[in-house]
Simulated scan of single mutants.
Amino acid sequence: MADSARAAKLAQRIKVVVAEGLRRRVKDPRVEGITVTDARVTNDLQHATVYYTVLGDETAQADAKVGLDRARGVLRQEVGRNITVRLTPTLEFVADEIPVNAGHLEELLRVAKARDAEVAAIAEGAAFAGDPDPYRKPEDDGEPED
């Protein structure tokens, strides 16, 4: 059983090797717009999950998934040549959801900013419902201050 630090180093190396392999070895036009964002390796160094993003619509993403599945053997061979472990890990490709989540967060922030602007516009012409300072002071009780 390997330690997690070694697995993390191996994951970074696999990320670089897969990205270079996609650029140099794989000639499939479906994988040209792929960016490898992250890789994770299990602690036993047997399985690697490679996360990727694709620019384009859902059709481009589906085509990229098919292209990666077809190039899995070539990329695993490339990984085996460029890393120093006894067994080459299996590769699994997963579409990275970070750009989708980031877009969703940006939309939520945009809505919150618009609501804040509405509240500020309403508060601009508003007046207090009671006294501007509703807290009781000692001189209001008729008692002298110390």
Rank of each mutant, 00 (worst) to 15 (best):
R25W: 08
R25N: 15
R25A: 13
K27F: 02
K27G: 06
K27I: 01
D28F: 04
D28N: 04
P29D: 10
P29A: 08
P29C: 09
R30K: 10
R30H: 05
R30C: 00
V31E: 01
V31P: 00
V31C: 06
E32R: 09
E32C: 10
E32P: 05
I34P: 00
I34D: 03
I34C: 06
T35Y: 13
T35I: 08
T35M: 13
T35W: 07
T35K: 06
D38I: 06
D38P: 06
A39K: 03
A39N: 04
V41E: 03
V41R: 00
N43C: 11
N43H: 13
N43L: 12
N43T: 15
D44K: 07
Q46S: 13
H47Y: 10
A48N: 04
A48I: 02
A48H: 01
A48T: 12
A48Y: 01
A48Q: 01
V50L: 07
Y51R: 12
Y52L: 07
Y52Q: 04
Y52W: 02
T53M: 07
T53C: 09
V54K: 04
V54G: 01
V54M: 04
V54F: 07
V54D: 02
L55E: 10
L55I: 15
G56S: 15
D57I: 13
D57S: 09
E58P: 07
T59W: 12
A60R: 10
A62T: 12
A62E: 15
A64C: 11
K65V: 09
K65Y: 08
K65L: 12
K65R: 15
V66R: 13
V66Y: 14
G67D: 01
G67I: 09
G67R: 02
G67Y: 00
G67N: 08
L68Y: 04
L68Q: 04
L68C: 06
D69S: 14
R70E: 14
R70G: 09
R70V: 08
A71L: 02
A71T: 00
R72P: 05
R72G: 01
R72V: 09
R72A: 11
R72Q: 10
R76G: 05
R76Q: 12
Q77G: 15
E78G: 05
G80Q: 07
G80T: 02
R81M: 11
N82L: 14
N82C: 09
T84M: 11
T84K: 14
V85I: 10
R86I: 08
R86V: 11
R86S: 13
T88W: 04
T88R: 01
T88E: 05
P89Q: 05
P89S: 04
T90Y: 08
L91R: 04
L91H: 02
L91Q: 00
L91N: 02
L91S: 03
E92H: 14
E92P: 04
F93P: 00
V94P: 04
V94C: 05
A95I: 11
A95M: 13
D96E: 07
D96F: 12
E97T: 11
E97G: 08
E97V: 12
I98Y: 13
I98H: 13
P99D: 04
P99E: 05
P99R: 00
V100Q: 06
N101Q: 15
N101C: 01
N101I: 12
A102G: 11
A102E: 08
A102F: 05
A102P: 03
G103F: 05
H104W: 08
H104F: 11
L105A: 06
E106M: 10
E106S: 12
E107D: 14
E107H: 12
E107C: 08
